[in-house]
Design a binder for these strands. Structure first.
Lengths: 103, 103
DNA sequence: ACCGTACTACGAGATTCATCGAAATACGAT
DNA sequence: ATCGTATTTCGATGAATCTCGTAGTACGGT
């Protein structure tokens, strides 16, 4: 199950990077959508975000490098999943609080 | 209890602005310190942040306009307090999660 | 082998933002 | 009134970053 793309270990995740990653509207939207699935999403295929492919890559990388999502290749696609357990352990309540935000 | 400086009402607080406000190291440090007091702090006097006064003003304004802190004049000082109740109501767990973050 | 799809890498442009110093304002104390 | 402290405002500067298009890579299917 080794990731091809570099991910921070749980103890390498920094709260500042997480907050910065979540502070962008596009990325927050991605996280909200990921929170609705267990299996993860190919953001480029399954989400219509109104941005270019290269911009999406940038955002997903920001989320991945911050430790918010885990990205796994499946065929030509990249499946992103929320790192719920890691985030809930490090920052209990944070994710739920954000997801509870009124639309 | 009307504030002299403009503050967003609870229902005007946007999660994106809150996250953006919290995503800066200086501002996060301020919030952490404020979380340790009930009465609030004059950030300029009681915190040594290693930044200029004008930069501090900028950060406190960002926190205030995002709805993270309430700022009240007391003499020549400005006392900042965390808007705990508002934030906990809007985003239950978010603040605690952030404050629980390992150093 | 070829094609199409999904994504990434690499600049580049435009905007945002953190920072500062200097000047100005507000208030309390003398 | 004057002074000192705390803070704000303004303008500038440099860094970060959001965005894109183009070109390239990777993989599955025909």
């Amino acid at each position: 199950m080794t990731a091809v793309l570099p991910h921070p270990e749980r103890d390498e995740i920094r709260i500042e990077a997480v907050l910065h990653a979540l502070a962008d509207p596009v990325r927050l939207h991605i996280v909200r959508e990921l929170a609705r699935t267990e299996e993860g999403l190919s953001c480029g295929v399954q989400l219509d975000l109104g941005i270019s492919a290269s911009t999406l890559t940038h955002h997903v990388r920001t989320l991945r490098e911050a430790g918010v999502v885990r990205v796994q290749p499946r065929g030509t696609a990249r499946i992103s999943t929320l790192r719920r357990e890691d985030l809930d352990t490090l920052y209990p309540g944070l994710l739920n609080g954000i997801l509870a935000a009124p639309r």
